[in-house]
Computed example of a mutant assay.
Amino acid sequence: MNKKAENIIVGISIGDLNGIGSEVILKTFEDSRMLELCTPVIFANAKILSFVKKSFTSTIQFHGVDKLDQILPGKVNVFNVWKEGVDIHLGVNNEKIGEYAIKSFVAATKALKEGVIDVLVTAPINKYNIQSEDFKFPGHTDYLDKELDGNALMMMVQGDLRVGLLTDHVPINEVSSHLTEELITRKIETVRKSLIQDFSIVKPKIAVLGLNPHAGDGGVIGKEDDLILKPVLKKIFDKGTMVFGPFPADGFFGSGQYEKYDAIVATYHDQGLIPFKTLSFGKGVNYTAGLNKVRTSPDHGTAYDIAGKDMADYNSFKEAVYLAIDIFRSRNQYEEITEKPLKIKEKQL
């Protein structure tokens, strides 16, 4: 395949075939203008997608390929990860379907590592039915953290609202034990670096939410904020990173305080995602920051209850595609800018 510099190849893992993933993917690329921005490659099976599109009105045409060097720009490419038929029962949780979701995801990740695709956008999976002897990860992020270079951090994005997490899929009664100086320092640095190279923010301002109600209220409601978070954040700030907090989480979003910062870092999953999804549901994107490759996904799950009913809103998936493209371009620009001084210095020597 002859690849132009501006022709970004977007790999897409199919997710749970019994959920709404296939529907939001196909609806996104019904708009032919999307093919002017990128070349999509869906990791699945062309015959299965032809079956799925019958559940809603669609005129989309596929270019099925058995080898990744057969990808064509200007087409909706489907890489046939498997050849056999699959029994699809839309809206049903099924372990066999989970196996195919992982086949798609693993194949797409391999293509991402090898540079065959430029970015990866993942459709929703069911975290329960994907578990097997070969795949024992809570979700996409943990697998990507193992397979790619860097340190993964879950960041939810919608416009200028960016919410990162110190801990993600950790039971709430274990969160405090994970909040070490090493983890906090590493996560804040990941957020800082991502804001600079992925979002082109030269001097980012980062807010961190407290773990306990009222950020501990001076130790009255838990001591972690005073004994762990505050000292570590001060050390990070003193080294030049514009990080502030810990802030009481209960009123931080409702008061509009979040608008003063380029990113907000929550201590645990629901503390960050509940306000984020309240403000942005249907348009938000889950971005895996901190890795050497770009991966995004929509902010929703498999939605079995509406699968096959032509009711799925595809805007979050479309935004995930847009964000992946934007970050890919931003990273390339950042690398070009940061490399030029070195080249100039080499010439002078």
Rank of each mutant, 00 (worst) to 15 (best):
A123V: 13
L229V: 06
F317D: 05
A44Y: 04
A215R: 01
T296S: 02
S200N: 11
L349Y: 09
K193L: 07
C38K: 13
L26Q: 08
T278D: 03
L148I: 04
V41C: 09
L166H: 14
L144D: 05
E335L: 01
M311G: 02
L68C: 04
S13D: 08
K223C: 12
D305S: 03
Y314M: 04
K113N: 08
K340Q: 05
I14N: 09
S55K: 12
P248G: 10
D31W: 07
K67V: 09
L179M: 00
Q61P: 01
D69F: 00
A101W: 00
Q197G: 13
G240M: 05
V191R: 03
H269M: 05
T185D: 03
N292S: 07
N126I: 13
V86A: 03
T59K: 14
I306P: 03
V294G: 06
G159Q: 12
I264A: 07
A289M: 03
G301I: 07
R162D: 11
F51Y: 11
L209K: 10
V41N: 06
K205F: 15
G98S: 15
N18P: 04
L323D: 08
A320C: 00
T288C: 10
K345W: 08
G282Q: 00
G218I: 00
S297M: 07
I9S: 03
K75L: 12
N292E: 14
K318N: 00
E335V: 01
A5M: 05
D66S: 14
P231R: 05
